[in-house]
Design a protein around this nucleic acid. Structure first.
Lengths: 217, 217
DNA sequence: GCTGTATTGATAAAATATTATCGATACAAA
DNA sequence: TTTGTATCGATAATATTTTATCAATACAGC
């Protein structure tokens, strides 16, 4: 397999499917199911069974003919792949409505994400606590990021504030940004940006709906 | 090109990039820029210029050598592609924190999305107004969806409530679902589902970050 | 009007991702 | 035991997506 210093490169489409597998597997585990076949997973998630097997191979889990894959092992393997078996401390930038919602989103614990502080430039918000997490002034971000060794930040600010916030984050040594701001941010080559704008996903949906409606005519 | 009853099928990766183009173009327009080259767009967004040209071709816009593409035409063409030049009325299901954030998200107007009502099963919430949109009891959804001819619904409920809500939505004739619930929902073949779980996007990010940290060792 | 050049758009090549095929294997039932 | 079968995992085939190449073209400067 292609590797980067011996680390397997998992294709992005596979990475996007892994959480679906994980969720299904956790459900099965709860129901006491011990092993599961690629066919079953494929049916449940509307995928091809060959694809499921291929995806599973990236986790280094090997199955047994006639039986399938061990549910527990697969859960662990996926969590390890995604680094979801440990907590990554993160900052949240932008305590607006989306930011607030994210701070309150319990599920992130299952995804290895742990918010340790939020930042905003609105004096009204600074000093408040949202879902138990303190909102600090954005000026303090660089120092705190370095002090607390934070590498990941979630950006939930309006478009026009985004780049300015990014620059502040970079000063603090942030190396990975989960970008919800509706714009493209500029970062040095080595910084990881994952865009999670609603618009991306919505574009796919509205196009399909539009095509669907047109085919009805 | 491949067509479905003469409608061009735009690849999903292209659809996901179109909103980025659109955003950049709107910025350029505001700055008074009249035309733009594929090279410029590619540089701004960190893409390949050939890819930009290929994507633009799907919008049926043709450019001029040495000049590039007309900004206004391209904006219109992308909006038309995505059906963002008209409003699609939509229901929101699940008035929790994410749902609330979405109801207040002004940008959706630019994406052709218009929330006309929200639904929840919590009696505390029913009757309230969130960002000017009334929260109704989920029981009333099927009748109202048909009456108001709503085809699109945004699902922001917890995992365990999701499938139940979906079944109710289907009764009302909903044909497109934007699913934020952290689970795979089951729908008939002809119903469009776009999964927008945070986990998908986060998986890509946490994996990359994990690999990045490992390569530093 | 001629010449140089940036850019398009078409075509081809490469890379990536998905789907199909099939022998090998482990379990279940006779 | 033996036989039948569900399932894996490897390989091959297909489809899709991205990237490269290059002739054709419109504008700018001389």
């Amino acid at each position: 397999m292609l590797t980067k210093k011996n680390i397997v490169v998992i294709p992005e489409p596979t990475l996007r499917r892994l959480p679906h597998y994980l969720h299904l597997l956790l459900n099965l585990k709860e129901q006491g199911v011990k092993s599961v076949s690629s066919t079953f997973i494929a049916n449940e998630l509307g995928l091809d069974s060959t694809q499921v097997r291929k995806d599973v191979q990236y986790t280094n889990i090997i199955g047994k003919p006639k039986t399938g894959f061990d549910v527990n092992s697969l859960i662990n393997a996926i969590q390890t792949c995604l680094n979801w078996n440990r907590y990554e401390n993160a900052f949240l930038i932008g305590a607006g409505s989306l930011g607030t919602a994210m701070l309150g989103y319990k599920q992130f614990k299952d995804y290895g994400l742990n918010f340790v502080a939020a930042f905003d430039n609105d004096p009204e918000k600074v000093g408040q606590k949202i879902h138990g997490i303190e909102v600090l002034s954005i000026d303090r971000l660089p120092v705190l990021a370095q002090l607390m060794k934070i590498h990941l930040a979630v950006l939930t600010v309006p478009a026009k504030a985004a780049q300015e916030c990014v620059d502040i984050m970079l000063k603090g040594g942030i190396v990975a940004i989960w970008n919800f701001a509706p714009m493209q941010i500029k970062v040095p080559q080595n910084v990881i940006v994952e865009n999670a704008q609603f618009s991306q996903s919505l574009a796919v949906l509205t196009r399909k709906l539009s095509v669907y409606k047109q085919t009805l005519l």
